[in-house]
Computed example of a mutant assay.
Amino acid sequence: MAAKKILIVTGDAVEALEVYYPYFRCMEEGFEADIAAPHKKKLHTVIHDFEDWETYTEKPGYLVEANLAFEDVKAEQYDGIIIPGGRAPEHIRMNEYLPGIVTHFFEADKPVCVMCHGSLVLTPIADVVKGRKMTAYQACRPEVESTGAEYMNEMDYVDRNLISGHAWPDLPAIMKEFVKQINSY
């Protein structure tokens, strides 16, 4: 039996924990995982932390290799997709290839894991998330609601194949569900 294949879509300024934790968790499970970005390159990650500010702070993080450019992704070859947060979703959502890639996973009813600001990637494809329920970082609530999705004020939420989390502290719960769905797919 061939290994399950997972696609992680991101770009520069991805939250470090939200890309590394899922990537290593997928490898631990025996899944093949590709990290795709606008360009095949080393990506700069950021570290968002909750200190004594009224919002999160940001510091430079590790580098992570994007081994695939969005234009080279063949979505039908993957069993699930992970969309990390950070600031990357702000700019990758504008990539001409990404909306079609993400739409494929919704239309094929494959597992979709969205973390934190990753919800911004869904704004250009509002038609596929309209009527769905999901959570995201609280500052993303207006964007979630602008897609026609219902914002769930919870740390993690599962709506069929759409698995969403509020922020990186919720990774254990959402990755547990994602792995379960991938193994059942």
Rank of each mutant, 00 (worst) to 15 (best):
G61I: 03
R25L: 11
V46Q: 05
I83H: 04
D159S: 14
A69K: 14
M175T: 08
M115S: 11
V144E: 13
I8L: 15
N161G: 03
E145C: 04
L63K: 09
W168P: 03
Y151L: 05
V121F: 09
V46R: 09
V14N: 04
P22S: 13
K40P: 04
T103L: 00
P60H: 11
E18C: 03
N95D: 15
L162G: 07
V73L: 08
T147K: 11
K130V: 07
H166P: 00
M1A: 03
V64T: 07
E71T: 05
M155S: 08
D170R: 12
E58G: 03
A88K: 08
M1P: 07
D159T: 15
P89C: 13
E150A: 11
H48W: 03
F105W: 04
C26G: 15
V14K: 06
T123N: 06
E65V: 06
E76R: 11
R87T: 00
I6H: 02
G118F: 03
T10K: 06
M152C: 13
V9H: 09
V102L: 02
P22Y: 13
L17W: 02
F50L: 15
M155P: 00
S119H: 11
R132I: 11
F178P: 11
Q77T: 05
A69V: 04
K74W: 04
R141G: 12
S164A: 10
I182Q: 05
Y185V: 13
R141S: 06
F70T: 07
P124Q: 12
H39Y: 14
A13I: 02
Y78Q: 06
A16V: 00
A126K: 13
Y97V: 00
S146C: 10
H117K: 12
E143K: 04
P99F: 05
D79A: 02
M1R: 08
D52W: 03
R87W: 10
G86M: 10
E90T: 10
L98H: 03
E177H: 09
R132G: 10
K110H: 01
N183G: 05
N153L: 14
D109G: 07
E90W: 14
Y21Q: 08
D34S: 06
I6S: 08
D156N: 14
I125D: 05
C113V: 09
F106E: 08
L7S: 01
D159R: 14
A37R: 09
G30C: 08
E15F: 03
